[in-house]
Every structure is written in C-alpha cells, then in structure tokens.
Amino acid sequence: MIKGTCWVADDYVMAYDIIIQEYWTSAIDSTENSKWVMAGVKEEFNKENAFKDRGYTFIVANHNFAGGGKSIEHVIAGLMGAGTQAVFATSFARLQFRNAINYGLPFVTSDDEMHLGCETGDELEYDADKGIIKNITKGTQFTSVPAAPFVGEVREAGGLMNYVRDKIAKGEPIE
C-alpha cells in the first residue's frame, strides 16, 4: 500500500517536456535527472528541483502520458528520483510505458477517467495487489487494468536489469 499526494497533469504530457532537450545527452541518473524533471511541462517546474520539492507521490494523467516518441530512460529515472511512486493514466505512450516496466515504476492504466475527479494535492492510496486506487480527499475509488504477471516479477526484482542479471548468474533460460 502506497499513500501520498498527487499531481494532476493536463492531457498530452510529452516525454520531451518531462525531460527537456538540453538534458537528452546527459547521463541516466535518477538524482541528476530529477532536478529538472517536468521542466518543459509547466513554467513553474522550470527551476532546479521545482517538481521534486512538491513531494508528490503520484501523478494522475489522461491520454498518452509521456508521449511524443522519445525512448530516453531519463524520463523514468527523473520521475523516480523526484519521488514518484506510481502514475495513473487513461493511456501511456508505449516507449515510456515499456521503460517504466523495465524500471519497476508502476504506470497504471485505469478506464475510470480518474483524472476528471482528481485535483492536485488530493491524497491517494494505491493498493497494487488489489488494483485499487482510492482518492481519500474526495472519497472516491478507481480500479486499475491488471498488468501481466511478468510486470510484477520485474518490479519485485527491482527492474529488468536485476531480473536478467539474476537469471544469467543462475544460468536460467530467459523465456
């Protein structure tokens, strides 16, 4: 069970706004990437640590979160470094959806359009096992679309790198 406040994003939050162009060629490092995460999304976040300092645990978004076709993992590393523990959206762009799975950061889809009833600062509670997202502030509840078991296994391993490293070390097949 994870509990904390949320930031409600506008529609179409793009990956290239989460990590702006001048940082695309920097190293993938959650502490470094988190300093300027969301810098291109809103002017108020375009200051060092501006998004991170708000201390949001969750992001709630609508369609195509982290879209626009950037495959860079700085996006996920930056969000994790800023303390984001789960993102809930109607849909995610596939490149970052994949990266989030590989990093073990829950990118959770819900058909319930929860962004419509959520406000920035609301307190949420996420039960990953049951797939239930509660908005404690508003007294509402949403259901997530279940993810494949593999997604949970990768998360438990602490990401795909650990998952594969462990298999290689044990000489187990990857299948």
Partner: peptide
C-alpha cells in the same frame, strides 16, 4: 521496434527482448 538502453543491454547480452 524502438526500445530503451535497458532493453538494448539485455538484447546485447542474451539476443532476446520481451514483447506484448
């Protein structure tokens, strides 16, 4: 298919990638 550096590293090591 476009992938991130993590998938590339795994594929370099194993010749494999996961897909839905």
């Amino acid at each position: 298919n476009a992938i991130g550096v993590t998938d590339a590293a795994v594929a370099m090591a194993t010749g494999k990638a996961w897909f839905r």
